[in-house]
Nucleic acid binder design. Structure first.
Lengths: 130, 130
DNA sequence: CGGGTGACGTTGTATATGCAACACATGCGT
DNA sequence: ACGCATGTGTTGCATATACAACGTCACCCG
């Protein structure tokens, strides 16, 4: 029973891979004082200026309160501006945010390259699930 | 550039999948007051009684301090016993821990079933990485 | 024996995440 | 206009995670 879980648990594998991948991106983005989570949000906002927070959350499958707090940090940094729109909030990139995005691109490329190696571990993951 | 990141970022995809999978397991384990992370640790300890913490951490690619704190919670719950062994710590399951594991098995099975659906999203992930 | 070095765990601090509870706005129906 | 349901965001609390700094133990070497 315990053997079966250890052999085939999807959560264990996905979570471990997530740790490895997240560490890789965070390490390379750290000089820019940006996290992988923040990069994802910044990209989404830059590509869809004025997007409603709730839409962004649904696209990323992010809980409302998590998104709210992550955005607050990015507003602090001056990368994002929030604009009230009734009960909702519209998100806009600032020029500093777009600059940060440009600066992050080389680090992202390198992280993407390193991640490709670890992503090979995804395939056994899928095969064992069956 | 931003388009490229949104289209192909491995971290974004792995992290989103991790959120979905983790939520699934945590939701089903919640009645037992157990998390997916704790289940993984408990399984590892149950299968290798006396395992050194550092070994478990390496197997799961878990940072030392993270493991230390997660284990502390499980010791609190009475599922695990820590035994000093020089500078290291040996981990043993308690009988309550083994009981909890047995109780968790049906929930794990159900989570595993639900996760199989979402894991289909892993395949597009891999293909776009190339 | 004494000092240094490396391995291991813990503590401080920060981000990421989620659930539950609350607050607020909007819009609808009467 | 009133009240109610719904959608949206925020706050309180808890876990998971990582890095940096620190304390300790063990071990080895001179």
């Amino acid at each position: 029973m315990a053997e079966e879980i250890q052999r085939s648990c999807v959560a264990t594998r996905v979570r471990r891979l997530n740790r490895q991948i997240t560490r890789t991106y965070d390490e390379l983005l750290r000089p820019l004082e940006m996290s992988g989570a923040q990069l994802t949000l910044l990209v989404g906002i830059a590509l869809h200026p004025g997007v409603k927070a709730v839409q962004l959350g649904k696209a990323l499958d992010l809980e409302r309160s998590t998104l709210s707090r992550n955005l607050a940090r990015m507003v602090e940094r001056g990368w994002v501006r929030e604009k009230a729109a009734g009960a909702a909030v519209e998100l806009h990139p600032t020029s500093a945010g777009l600059d940060a995005l440009r600066c992050a691109y080389p680090a992202w490329l390198e992280a993407q390259k390193r991640a490709a190696l670890k992503a090979a571990q995804l395939e056994p993951l899928l095969q064992r699930k069956a």
